[in-house]
Design a protein around this nucleic acid. Sequence first.
DNA 1: TTGAAAGCGGTACCAA
DNA 2: TTGGTACCGCTTTCAA
Lengths: 344, 344
Amino acid sequence: MVQIPKKEPARRSVPTSADVARLAGVSRATVSYVLNNTSAVRISEPTRRRVHAAARELGYVPHAAARSLRAGHSRMVLMPTSETPLGPLLSQFFNELQWALSRLDYTVVQYASLGMTGEDAARAWAELRPVAVLSPDASALGPRGVEVLKRSGAKAVFTLGPQRVEGAHALLMDGRRVGEAAALHLLARGRRRIGAIVPEEPGLEIFSEPRVEGLRKALRAVRITGASLTEVPLAYDEASAARLAARWRSLGLDGVFAYNDEYAMLLLRALQDEGVAVPDETAVVGSDDLMLGRLLRPRLSTVRIELPSGRGLAELVDRVVRDPGTEPEVHDVLGADVVHRESS
Amino acid sequence: MVQIPKKEPARRSVPTSADVARLAGVSRATVSYVLNNTSAVRISEPTRRRVHAAARELGYVPHAAARSLRAGHSRMVLMPTSETPLGPLLSQFFNELQWALSRLDYTVVQYASLGMTGEDAARAWAELRPVAVLSPDASALGPRGVEVLKRSGAKAVFTLGPQRVEGAHALLMDGRRVGEAAALHLLARGRRRIGAIVPEEPGLEIFSEPRVEGLRKALRAVRITGASLTEVPLAYDEASAARLAARWRSLGLDGVFAYNDEYAMLLLRALQDEGVAVPDETAVVGSDDLMLGRLLRPRLSTVRIELPSGRGLAELVDRVVRDPGTEPEVHDVLGADVVHRESS
DNA sequence: TTGAAAGCGGTACCAA
DNA sequence: TTGGTACCGCTTTCAA
């Protein structure tokens, strides 16, 4: 390993295309032509080489802001990061989406707009002049926020959550599907007095409320006499679970949808410690089909959630960007079906 | 040049400060003064109001690229997203960091540079001219990448992972600590023939290798005769775990560090199904102190990892940005201690 | 108190 | 095949 002494002047300023031009002995226009491989203009091979060499020597990197300022548009897709950390399912989905978008030559950028809401956040995003915005949180955006973004040049505004908002395309991930699937399964297993675990952690209402609503809707729809729904708050810690388990029998529930597999595991353990038989006394159904659920005894029944491929969605975004005239559409993208194992 | 009359409402183009100036009947300079509250210049109250009203009416949002182009610098902190999804521990840490940075008035942006590596990625990042770059993946960056970023004007380049790289500040999260803690604990519990689960999933080597190295180092250091380390590959699925469990006794291990709590849970279940007694025959230690580990029976012993507060790190970044002259420092930020429960 | 104008770094049109 | 140059939107002297 060779130690290279640092004798270069540290405060060298950032090289621009003018510096490259000067070093190569050509004009800035030529530099631009060469580095962008402009097909409308033919540059001689020797010149090309000189320009490339100069650029490399200076470590020249074009300035994205200057470029998009001149171009009047960018290929930046902005994805505001949600404040609540997402589970493995959604992170996987967003990862895939990001990857697919960058395959389509978009620059995907996640932007942390913490603390602000609605129009304020939208304005902050709009300052970056993204060509498209994919917002996981529709409710925080609002119709006015959508308007701000469009006014600032965004060709496509999508919301990606359980909510939708006027003016924006929606990838509706309808959590009610999850609740419905769970309810129908529990009913089919002969359960009637159904509980719905509701996480006490703030920020999770966005997910839990639609699921509960789905349960309620399904119970109403089947019109089975004696079927009932009870919302049961639970914090994600052992003490809370133990307290709930201690009064479990007083609730008189014979089936419970536990919000997701993690809460289900917490509840299952607490119930077992309390001597409540699962599934005999109470059937337990989780959601998300995590690996951990398969490892429990009894194995955890769960609602498997299907999300669309990131590739398909990326193409949809691309289509809307190319043809911004299209009316906002709602795409119903969440599939839910029950994986029946041993806990129900 | 013929002045083309501009139909006001017809063209829904993005409003600029010139539009605001025209509507308010002032110059662009005045608009800038008013909207930025420039203290060096005093603008009369009536003018202020007219400008604000005009801006609001047009839905004017300043153009961040134009602004930072003119200013010659930005307050953007770039955090390349790692390709491998991070666990709850790290996501929490990054969230906190983001929040703290935006409190310090930085614009935090996560950039997906998928597929590229090293200098290519660095060049892509450099195009955005961030004032600071916080890269979770030091190995992909490389010294040349750091150089590219600095040349493009980045005042601070940090790496945030188990690796470090020349020229960049490092928040060294030394996974060897985790392995060491686990090894010392297992040795203290009288275990000698230690196994190290190595996930087969690609991308996890960055985390697993240092942990194994830590185990090895600790075993060497104590110089207990008969102490040995065996690397045991395991994929994150039941079949792989079952296969491993079936040949477990042939490995002759009396203790195992299972990489993290999830792999530990997978292994634990497979061992139990195979009739291997835990901890009597084999002690199992996980890592990350997830809730799920507490719910297992036996309760899972685990290595609790401590990461610094995002706030402190944000201040460190801010300090380096303000004084870019400081020599790159290595901050050792990962603490590891064992939470002894029942599986060891 | 306000305005005219230069210029940040690129791109692309028009000439040479 | 190349160069000159206007301009993208904004900030900031310098004058008025």
